[in-house]
């Protein structure tokens, strides 16, 4: 198992290298002179040159890349054009809120999604199944920002249970986490249902029935773990969806995390911040994929021994 994890980490190195190149080239892909865009059309040449220098655009491109890598190694992610503060510093303060937001919403999504999926699979083609699956399609179709505003309007404005915006206490997590989790819960519910229905067709389920287990025991003791193998994989991949969704949700709730920061940075063309965020998100993806593989190995004994 350890060998397997190590191998996967080694496999990540070339990918990381490609990621740094893409992130580095980001500024160079902007049509026109990025410094000019940042400075604005009326800015004088001196300002433009100063910004060019700040972005490191004044040197040959290969040298720029090595400077960039060198800085990364030192933990220097550049300086925000807007605040003139080191990007890393702000990133540190914004990382944990987003981290917890994704964790809570994933927890919500897994509990609700797997629950509905199991119920639907057990009561297949019943009213509850149809209701659950229709709910899931609605969950996939509902615009998260709209759902966020509705929840905010109801629970914060009308009932006053939660703060409308900001993150002064744990209550600030509740509505954003639910809003963010609904879409993923819907996807997990659909997936869990179909995975379970596939598993229930397997021969070993018939064996379980032949042993005299009741349908609910079959579901929980025989089918669930098998169905969880694909569900875990899919759920892990949904973390990406959550990261994407967090951008929207954080903006809705004025949540001080990485997502709202990214939108601000895009709006103000704060390129070093955008670059740093793309890098961070890519890293998170790679890590999540690694984690999914590891958990997959634990759930499926056949995988573990193949490596």
């Amino acid at each position: 198992m350890l060998k397997f994890i190590l191998k996967r980490i080694l496999q990540m190195i070339p990918i990381l290298f490609v990621v740094t190149i893409v992130v580095f080239l980001f500024v160079h892909m902007i049509p026109g002179n990025p410094a000019r865009i940042v400075a604005g059309a009326d800015a004088d040449q001196a300002t433009v040159e100063m910004i060019e220098k700040k972005l490191g655009l004044d040197k040959p491109i290969v040298e720029q890349y090595f400077v960039y890598i060198g800085n990364l190694a030192k933990g220097d992610l550049g300086t925000s054009l807007k605040t003139n503060e080191p990007v890393l510093q702000e990133m540190k303060s914004r990382f944990m809120p987003t981290f917890w937001l994704t964790v809570w919403s994933m927890l919500f999504a897994v509990i609700v999604g797997v629950g509905i999926g199991i119920l639907s699979a057990m009561k297949r083609n019943s009213f509850w199944d149809y209701l659950g699956m229709f709910g899931a399609v609605v969950g996939i179709s509902i615009p998260s920002f709209w759902l966020g505003l509705l929840l905010m309007q109801w629970f914060s404005v009308k009932l006053g249970w939660f703060p409308t915006t900001g993150l002064d206490s744990w209550q600030g997590y509740v509505l954003p986490s639910i809003t963010l989790g609904v879409g993923v819960a819907a996807i997990i519910a659909r997936f869990t249902r179909s995975a379970l229905i596939d598993v229930l067709k397997e021969d070993y389920i018939r064996t379980g029935r032949a042993k005299g287990f009741s349908e609910s025991k079959i579901m929980i003791r025989q089918a669930l773990k098998n169905a969880m193998v694909p569900v875990v994989t899919m759920t892990g991949l949904q973390f990406g969806f959550l990261l994407g969704g967090s951008v929207v949700i954080e903006t809705v709730f004025g949540f001080p995390g990485l997502g709202s920061w990214l939108i601000d940075a895009v709006a103000t063309r704060d390129y070093p911040v955008i670059q740093a965020e793309i890098l961070l998100f890519s890293l998170e993806f790679l890590l999540i994929n690694l984690l999914v593989d590891v958990i997959y190995g634990f759930l499926n004994p056949q995988i573990r021994y193949d490596d």
Partner: peptide
């Protein structure tokens, strides 16, 4: 590579390059 990123983040990245 394209699929590795969630759609909306990719879209935001592209808009960050092209402008809103």
């Amino acid at each position: 590579v394209l699929l590795a990123f969630p759609g909306i983040l990719l879209a935001i990245g592209i808009i960050a390059i092209l402008g809103p």
